[in-house]
């Protein structure tokens, strides 16, 4: 930046130019992790369903806990790729997902405890719709913060799926295809907004 005498107009122009440049700096990498989550969950779900189908052993459903493997991998990757700049928007989004992260951990732990020690096996069926609700809330709130109406609308529309699952669980009719519904909903809620946001970030940062 060259040294030159600043007029009042030039100063204000410089200020607005720098503020606009910084505001546009949306970090696309964080949305890659949405796509990663969606694809990993879908592939893991297909693998689990296939194993249960071939072996007939329901205990293989415990493999859903492999979701935590991706969570650890994703956290480590995000720590390594810390962005050069953190905006207030980034901070708000990280805050929301950190709070939801604890719910992702606590829910399966609490439900598993409830099933094993209190013999409330129906509690295990609650994990999937609850995880979907947390994900829907996270993606929708991110959309609100970024003022992206589709990022808010897609998860809100998809909330029909966990609400239906709750209704079915309460009538004690949980079937295996609800797992397919979970995988499909999770994939749509994470991957579609992830792709849209990555595309927008790339266009803004050009």
């Amino acid at each position: 930046m060259e040294k030159q005498k600043l007029s009042a107009e030039a100063s204000l122009e410089l200020i607005s130019q720098m503020i606009n440049q910084s505001k546009m700096n949306l970090n696309g990498k964080s949305f890659n992790s949405w796509i990663g989550w969606g694809v990993y969950t879908l592939l893991l779900g297909i693998a689990i369903l296939a194993i249960v189908e071939f072996t007939g052993v329901q205990q293989w459903y415990w493999l859903w806990f492999l979701e935590f493997v991706y969570a650890i991998f994703d956290c480590k990757r995000n720590q390594r790729q810390e962005p050069k700049v953190k905006t207030h928007i980034d901070n708000a989004i990280v805050g929301i997902w950190s709070a939801l992260g604890w719910l992702y951990i606590l829910t399966p732990v609490a439900m598993t405890f409830s099933a094993i020690y209190l013999q409330h096996f129906w509690a295990l069926n609650m994990i999937m719709p609850l995880v979907l609700i947390y994900t829907i809330v996270g993606v929708a709130f991110t959309g609100v913060i970024l003022r992206e109406k589709w990022i808010t609308a897609i998860p809100v529309i998809c909330s029909i799926s966990p609400l239906y699952m709750f209704a079915v669980i309460s009538s004690q009719q949980f079937a295996q295809w609800h797992m397919v519904l979970f995988m499909a909903t999770f994939f749509v809620v994470m991957v579609v907004p992830g792709i849209i946001l990555n595309y927008k970030c790339k266009r803004l940062n050009k």
Binding site: I15, I19, K86
Partner: peptide
């Protein structure tokens, strides 16, 4: 101007 519009 940059720092006023970002966290860090």
């Amino acid at each position: 101007s940059i720092l006023v519009s970002v966290e860090s």
